[in-house]
Design a protein around this nucleic acid. Structure first.
Lengths: 330, 330
DNA sequence: TTGAAAGCGGTACCAC
DNA sequence: GTGGTACCGCTTTCAA
């Protein structure tokens, strides 16, 4: 910037004004400066700017795995939303590791993001995140974080699971299983609990069959096979997220099972499987937008206790629920 | 940091040494400093550090859309690879807009990333990216960029398409269509060209039927319907990427078509559709890793002309290729 | 093993 | 409209 100033024969301050589109510069001066900037290939140094201004117009996002479509859609929607407020979103993956999450939190805080959105890797707040929360607003998405006073955006897990169970019951299913993702994942536990509650509420017969992961190779198939045996074997299964849904679909094919599946999380080809899969749709884009909105509300000065937003789900019925004629298997 | 120094009764430099795990600090001094850091909730200011050091140990990634699984897997693999070299990856989406891409390039350069990986939004290098390339290594992934001297990592488009055509021909298909993504997308053009070349090479009869997008609502279905008519209607169609594959699958269902589909890009449920879909698999993780490796090679001082890496594809045969009995349609 | 001081590249404040 | 200068928080260099 000093170079540009020298070359353009103006002061550094004037160059700064041009770079930042500040008023109070004669158009001719401005265009001369701009020409020199071009010529010299000058690039402003955001670090220096942050240092002086004390702010960065950027926010950080930590998800479990950017490779998972659900999270990547969340990231994409948040990026759009942040951009519409002239902020830059830095998206990162913790890969399910609390240690990595803590590192990322520190890295983002060090980059002086103005706020943090986190899909927590564990259910208890790390020291890193608690310390971050003292400096800037933090919003948890998809799962709450015990031991942290932070705004939270959740999916309506109870409502979503209940709608799935009711749908199956309305289609004459009485014995329904539940398969959840790894037990360390809060939503898996929560959806399991919701399943048990619905089971009770609707007075379904017998002991409810449920299980959480992680699953060994072939375990899902073996489990479903076992649950489906006999005259009161299950006729349908509800899954806690798209990861498990995929495992169940694979297991069914491999073993020739024929259970009705209702999946938590919609997925792109649900309509085109045979039979199509009914899903509890929780729109990652809605969660992301709400999270960013809440974050900006805090940045704009909102005070008061942490809020919890519950985003409704929608059951997408795809005609997969009809109870099949007695299993084609023995 | 000054606060910490004052409180710990040491110099700023000593605090800096502790924060950076530099040698030459007595263990007791170090732990005292660390305690104060904790107590005061001190966070180092990366911007100030970058400013002084002139480097940032971070690299930037610009893809088309983080919400698309292919790109998000690319991003995830690059994040892992960058992390293994102690670098921080900043992933962003240009949403197919060259203007947005230019903004992102500038934003990342301003953040002093050490290198840039780009899935170009257009085929010609923007001023922003050319200017960035003078400051730091740039690697293009999936598509090359005319007018830019930069390393490039591509999928083996020719080989991939040829393997798809040969596979279909080996299964007695003679009339094969090709449906590409939007014509502005380089890979769509390239794969179309490869398709035409293969068509020639194998001496397939008649005029090859090909089309690039964008497609209006229902257009894909209408097109396939038309192409499939008559005694030399097509019996199979090759698509240029997963986006088009989805459209073709949907079109087939909607209109009761029954063409064999071979898709460029593998996708999660390809195995579970009826019939399963054979795919040209180009592993986004391999592309990403190679891109990061090339980037670090440059950062490590590699000189010389830009390199182009071609990543082989693999045809995943899923038994979808058998030629169907004469169409069930009129 | 520790410290003092200069300076990285911007921006705020105030003077002209 | 424009310029001068202090200073943001850290690292480098050199001295003690």
């Amino acid at each position: 910037m000093a170079d540009v100033a020298r070359r353009a024969d103006v002061s550094i301050k004037t160059v700064s004004r041009v770079v930042n589109d500040e008023p109070g510069v004669r158009p001719q001066t401005a265009s001369k400066v701009r020409a020199i900037i071009e010529e010299l290939g000058f690039h402003r140094h955001e670090g220096a700017s942050m240092l002086r201004k004390g702010r960065s117009t950027s926010i950080g996002l930590i998800v479990e795995d950017l490779g998972n479509p659900w999270y990547s859609q969340l990231a994409a929607s948040m990026e759009r939303e942040a951009r519409s407020r002239n902020h830059f979103l830095i998206s990162t993956s913790a890969e399910g590791s609390p240690e990595r999450e803590a590192e990322l939190v520190d890295a983002l805080v060090a980059r002086r993001v103005e706020g943090l959105v986190v899909v927590p890797a564990s259910s208890d707040a790390s020291e890193a995140i608690r310390s971050a929360a003292e400096e800037m607003p933090v919003v948890c998405v998809d799962r709450p974080l015990a031991g942290l006073v932070a705004d939270t955006v959740l999916s309506d897990n109870e409502g979503g699971v209940r709608s799935a169970v009711e749908h199956l019951v309305a289609h004459r299913h009485r014995r329904i299983g539940f398969l959840g993702d790894d037990e360390v994942i809060w939503t898996a536990q929560r959806r399991q609990a919701a399943f048990l509650a619905s089971y009770d509420l609707l007075g379904l017969p017998g002991e409810p069959l449920t299980r959480l992961g992680p699953y060994a190779d072939g375990e899902v198939a073996a489990l479903l096979d076992r649950w489906g045996q006999g005259r009161d074997g299950i006729t349908a299964v509800i899954t806690s997220n798209n990861r498990v849904t995929m495992q169940v679909i694979a297991a069914q094919r491999v073993c020739g099972l024929d259970l009705v599946v209702v999946g938590y999380d919609d997925f792109e080809l649900a309509d085109f499987l045979e039979p199509p899969v009914t899903c509890v749709h929780q729109d990652p884009a809605s969660l992301g937008e709400r999270a960013i909105q809440q974050l900006f509300a805090r940045l704009d000065g909102e005070l008061g206790d942490p809020r919890t937003h519950v985003i409704p789900t929608r059951l997408i019925v795809r005609g997969s629920a009809r109870r099949r004629p007695a299993s084609r298997r023995a």
